[in-house]
């Protein structure tokens, strides 16, 4: 199994994502620059947080046209696992791999803090190691995490159980239905505003993000037999 961490100009959580994969999944992981046009070698693709292209125009709007994103779309089609965190989530929305869009936080404030999340759906490749409705602690750090979609899309998200994480208690950004993370219908693409890669050791104040990475590994093993480092 091989993992790619996509790096855009302005990504800043790429190192943390890389380290989380090394520490928790313990599989080969590589940085892949946004101009790359071949992702065939990778089984899991991670889009890290940051401010790709300075968030110019809209968050993720310019990154979406990076050469690598065409390959990410192809990988999604092929059923590979794709996780977008924070800016990575915004890019997945702009790309249309996930439905909806991001608005400025309702408070207009950049929120950077540990927040409780509810695992709404543990039947995904990314959440298999969590219990359904479990409350976990994962930090957020964003100014534009106010997830929005129209009512029709929301009804579809609910019907297909695509809402994976919601904010428990206070909603830090005003997102519709307290949404913190959603997946596609096929369950192989997950976007979330909170940063699981920043909660993988007790010294980080929480290690609840660990199980997201272990879930990915577990799913991949189940799908591909036990040959992990092949």
């Amino acid at each position: 199994m091989k993992v790619a961490v996509i790096v855009f100009p302005g990504s800043n959580a790429d190192l943390e994502m890389f380290n989380a994969v090394e520490d928790i999944m313990q599989v080969p992981v590589e940085y892949v620059w946004h101009s790359e046009t071949d992702l065939a070698a990778y089984d899991v693709i991670l889009l890290p947080g940051g401010f790709s292209y300075g968030d110019y125009l809209r968050c993720g709007a310019v990154a979406r046209f990076s050469p690598v994103m065409e390959q990410v779309a192809k990988a999604a089609d092929a059923g590979k696992l794709i996780l977008g965190v924070c800016n990575g989530f915004q890019i997945l929305l702009e790309t249309g791999l996930l439905p909806g869009a991001m608005l400025r936080n309702r408070s207009l404030k950049y929120r950077c803090k540990m927040v409780p999340l509810r695992v709404e759906n543990n039947q995904t490749p990314f959440t298999a190691d969590y219990a359904e409705n479990e409350i976990i602690q994962i930090p957020i750090a964003h100014g534009e995490g106010n997830y929005y979609c129209d009512q029709e899309t929301l009804a579809r998200l609910k019907a297909n159980k695509q809402i994976v994480f919601t904010y428990e208690g206070e909603n830090p950004n005003g997102s519709i239905e307290n949404i913190a993370g959603i997946c596609n219908e096929r369950r192989n693409v997950l976007g979330m505003m909170p940063h699981p890669e920043r909660a993988v050791h007790q010294w980080m104040s929480s290690d609840d993000g660990k199980r997201l990475f272990s879930s990915i590994l577990k799913t991949w093993r189940e799908q591909n037999g036990a040959a992990i480092n092949a």
Partner: peptide, 8 residues
């Protein structure tokens, strides 16, 4: 394609 996100 780029200048506006017609979702919002």
């Amino acid at each position: 394609k780029l200048l506006a996100n017609t979702v919002i």
